[in-house]
Design a protein around this nucleic acid. Structure first.
Length: 457
RNA sequence: GGCUGGGUGGCAGAAUGGUCAUGCAGCGGUUUGCAAAACCGUGUACGCCGGUUCGAUCCCGACCCCAGCCUCCA
């Protein structure tokens, strides 16, 4: 039984899709005005893992991840760069796609962009007017009237009046209530704009996701999620808009990924403590970065450090060593490993626990490979399959273990030959000298069963 | 001020009322020409103080500390 923690009810619930066997899932993507950082990657990879596991469990998942391509920050950057708007946005979309590919992410089935949903957005705002939830403010912008929606605050669990006492809520004479938020914002000069019944302008931040979620997946969907920082106000506002327009529940299960931290504080663009995906990929492979991101439970904070990445690299290496020089064959029967793996993942996607099962299988392969190659091969097949559910271990082991920089495989083989000639003559001094030489170049040699294999260190 | 999560061994990071997380690193052993890898073994970990209990890291209460949201944020 798959259990998922629902941010709306604050508890784990048995997951039952609205339509048996099918899952509609919407993940909030990124705003494309800069390189994605590892915090973005964490959330993106968390949902990637969720989709993969749901599919492994046999669900027919429709996976939608949006792109926010209208936004104040984008406009600001575009004007600073004096760049053409769509060219700027497209550049960062391409970069995001490249980065996510490196991290082994699957593509969503649909990737809607806010700018492609203007008619739906405008229609949604019209519906909100008809039902009395929208009004034109003092400055001509269109606002959502939170006072009208009695369930406002049900996700982020805040009392309207208490939130107001926080004093960090910006007041404005344009709004009826400080918490009211913009649905449609009138354009200023040099801003991209779209025609609407309320004048040329652009949508507010939250309305686009409501329009895209309902437009691509329906008015009530199974899973909607994003980073924990979207709980309020973004997701709260999405609920308000969507449910007051459709009079239906918007989302059954809300999922939120925990923060990636650096030095125990949240990694974010505004704090200037972030590392982009590319920063990490300059030193570690995408698979190592992915392993790291999944090495903590998706809802827990995860601490980013170079050391943590190194540990991920080492861990992944030992899994690949188990898969080295072995041909995965058929699935083994009667093993308890897959059962344990599923139990871990069924418990709100407990990837750290699932990892421990992967290591159990790796140990089993290493124990069996001399005594019972056939069973070892079967376990190798299982390890690769379960690793695949997490988007890991799909490379050839040699591709992971022998990724060299600076030294060519041909040169290494030549030196290994020389060394083995020396070894045959028991010229240990020469042999060790060659090994030390390779070692300084980051190459480790292993002598086994009369031949020598190498890997990067 | 309101609200949400946390505090686990050198590091990362899970579960759990009483026998093992797991990984990385370390140590001892087997193996090896020496190594490496692998295998076997190895650690007085659970913020502080009370309480419940035959027994608590895990339940309850107080306290301390940390992070986060309440403003753009994955």
């Amino acid at each position: 039984m798959l259990q998922i923690y629902n941010s709306l009810t604050k508890q784990k619930e048995e997951f039952k899709p609205i339509t048996p066997g099918k899952v509609t899932l919407y993940a909030c993507g990124v705003t494309t005005y800069d390189f994605c950082h590892m915090g973005n990657a964490r959330t993106l990879i968390a949902f990637d893992m969720v989709v993969r596991y749901l599919r492994y469990r046999g669900f027919d998942v429709k996976y939608v991840r949006n792109i926010t391509d209208v936004d104040d920050k984008i406009i600001k950057r575009v004007n600073e760069n004096r760049e053409e708007y769509y060219a700027f946005v497209q550049r960062y979309i391409d970069i995001m796609h490249e980065d996510l590919k490196e991290l082994g992410a699957i593509m969503p089935d649909e990737e809607p962009r806010a700018t492609q949903f203007m008619p739906q957005i405008i229609y949604l705002i019209q519906r909100l007017f008809e039902k009395g939830y929208a009004y034109v403010g003092g400055n001509g912008d269109v606002f959502y009237d939170v006072r009208h929606f009695k369930n406002y605050g049900k996700l982020s669990c805040c009392d309207l009046d208490k939130m107001r006492s926080g004093a960090r809520v910006e007041t404005s004479e344009n709004k009826k209530d400080p918490l009211d938020f913009v649905l449609w914002k009138l354009a200023k000069p040099n801003e991209p704009s779209w025609e609407s019944p309320w004048g040329k302008g652009r949508p507010g931040w939250h309305i686009e996701c409501s329009a895209m979620s309902m437009g691509t997946l329906g008015e009530t969907i199974d899973i909607h999620g994003g980073g924990a920082d979207l709980l309020f106000p973004h997701h709260e506002n999405e609920i308000a808009q969507s449910e007051s327009a459709s009079s239906k529940p918007f989302v059954k299960t809300w999922m939120h990924a925990g923060y990636l931290q650096t030095n125990k504080t949240k990694m974010s663009k505004s704090s200037d403590n972030f590392f982009t995906i590319r920063d990490v990929l300059a030193y570690f492979s995408g698979e190592v970065a992915r392993y790291f991101l999944l090495s903590g439970h998706y809802r827990s904070p995860l601490n980013y450090s170079e050391d943590a990445l190194k540990q991920a690299d080492q861990s992944l290496e030992s899994l690949y060593i188990a898969l080295r020089d072995i041909t995965p064959t058929f699935m083994p029967s009667n093993t308890v490993f897959e059962k344990y793996f599923m139990e871990a993942m069924n418990d709100d996607f407990n990837t750290p626990q699932a990892f421990s099962v992967l290591f159990d299988i790796a140990h089993e392969i290493n124990r069996l490979r001399d005594a019972d190659m056939k069973t070892a091969q079967a376990h190798a097949a299982l390890l690769k399959r379960l690793g695949g559910v997490l988007g890991l271990l799909q490379q050839e082991p040699s591709a992971f273990l022998q990724k060299t920089e600076g030294v060519s495989a041909g040169d290494i083989d030549k030196l290994i030959q020389e060394r083995n000639q020396a070894r045959a003559q028991k010229d240990w001094a020469t042999a060790d000298k060659i090994r030390d030489q390779l070692s300084t170049q980051g190459i480790v040699l292993e002598d086994k069963d009369g031949h020598t294999v190498w890997r990067k260190k």
